[in-house]
Simulated scan of single mutants.
Amino acid sequence: MNISFSYDRKQVIQALRYHFFSRPEIRLLVILINVFTIAAAVLLYFKRIQPFSFLLFSTLWMALMLVIWRILPNSIYKKSQTFRDEFLMSIDEQEITLTTDRGRQSWPWQRFSKFIETPYFFHLYFDNRSFFLVPKDAFENITDQQAARDMMKEKIRAAGS
């Protein structure tokens, strides 16, 4: 199966947000900040703490969300040449091959550690931090998209076993 694609900025930013929020350390940090902010609000309501403490936790929460939701995805998008390239991808039983104006790269299925599907992309992970995005809208029809999904699930699950 062959597909060609380029990336849409808004969709990539959303995919990067999903990636960051799926990281256990980010998720734990967000949960802890939320718990402390809620606790500070309750304690402020019962006049057990000063308003400054609530303001501090609220500011931490807003800063964390700003960094994860806006700054981090946008900075990665701007720094990466990958998101500005045009791609031709070939998916077959043995490997995935990616071709751009700058070159060609092939990865056997065993190279991928996991596969995640989000609203706009298939995320093909090499390890916990590096991955490749395959846009769903690159497929000609839903049948091709389903065939690719099934192959990715089968091959990457088999590779991870």
Results as ranks from 00 to 15, higher is better:
109 W>E: 05
102 R>K: 09
85 D>C: 09
62 M>K: 04
81 Q>T: 10
107 W>N: 13
147 A>N: 13
86 E>C: 05
121 F>P: 03
128 N>G: 11
81 Q>S: 14
142 I>L: 14
144 D>A: 15
80 S>Q: 07
148 A>N: 09
65 M>P: 02
76 I>L: 04
72 L>Q: 07
132 F>N: 10
24 P>A: 12
77 Y>G: 01
118 T>P: 01
137 D>Q: 14
77 Y>T: 03
35 V>K: 00
65 M>F: 12
94 Q>I: 00
66 L>W: 08
36 F>C: 12
128 N>E: 14
19 H>E: 13
86 E>M: 05
95 E>K: 07
100 T>Q: 06
40 A>K: 03
68 I>E: 01
23 R>A: 12
157 R>L: 14
17 R>A: 02
123 H>Y: 07
22 S>M: 13
55 L>G: 12
57 F>P: 10
57 F>K: 00
93 E>Y: 06
155 K>P: 05
66 L>N: 07
36 F>H: 01
82 T>R: 06
75 S>A: 08
137 D>W: 09
45 Y>S: 05
76 I>K: 02
119 P>I: 11
43 L>Y: 10
16 L>R: 01
77 Y>V: 01
20 F>A: 04
58 S>H: 02
71 I>D: 03
34 N>P: 08
36 F>S: 04
66 L>Q: 05
93 E>S: 14
156 I>R: 03
35 V>A: 14
138 A>L: 10
156 I>M: 04
65 M>V: 14
111 R>F: 07
124 L>P: 03
108 P>D: 12
57 F>W: 13
26 I>Y: 08
12 V>Y: 03
80 S>C: 04
122 F>W: 12
42 V>N: 01
31 I>F: 09
11 Q>S: 15
39 A>I: 10
12 V>D: 02
36 F>Q: 02
141 N>I: 11
98 L>A: 06
121 F>Y: 15
151 M>N: 07
27 R>C: 10
69 W>H: 06
98 L>R: 07
89 M>I: 15
73 P>G: 04
105 Q>E: 08
